[in-house]
């Protein structure tokens, strides 16, 4: 249940950005989350809807989540592979010498809204 702490940090960042840009009515908050983080989207959305009312201008905001698959690059065979399970071994040549190139994202991308 680390989703609550992540949503709290997300709203803090989004509120700072909205204040700086002069947005008084935020309509959406857009985030990118990698599957390695084990986040449950429904729980993120639930916490977002519970917490947003405490941030001025976010009362009508909607959270949009872009979930990223886990992708590794193999140093041994050079292939790039998407993983359907958390085995960080190359599915092609079984080398453990791999690098995670996607799926570790935990970013706020943007906010959308308007000023009054």
């Amino acid at each position: 249940m680390h989703e609550a702490a992540i949503v709290r940090s997300l709203l803090d960042l989004a509120f700072q950005a909205a204040t700086k840009a002069g947005l008084s009515n935020v309509s959406s908050v857009n985030v990118m989350t990698g599957k390695i983080h084990h986040l449950v989207n429904e729980v993120l959305l639930l916490h977002f809807d519970l917490m947003k009312a405490t941030y001025n201008g976010f009362e009508r905001a909607v959270l949009h989540i872009e979930e990223k698959d886990v992708i590794i690059q193999c140093y041994a065979c050079g292939q790039t592979k998407e993983l359907d399970r958390p085995f960080f071994i190359c599915p092609n040549c079984e080398s453990p010498d791999t690098k995670l190139i996607a799926g570790d994202e935990l970013h706020i991308i943007s906010i959308e809204g308007s000023s009054t």
Binding site: I6, S9, L10, D12, L13, A14, A17, A18, A21, L23, S27, V31, L106, H107, I108, I109, S110, I111, E112, G113, S114, S115, T116
Partner: peptide, 17 residues
């Protein structure tokens, strides 16, 4: 009431980090 799209692109746990 001009709609705006504000790019942020920041790690959510930046404050903790």
């Amino acid at each position: 009431m001009c709609p705006q799209d504000i790019k942020i692109m920041q790690r959510i746990l930046t404050g903790n980090d």
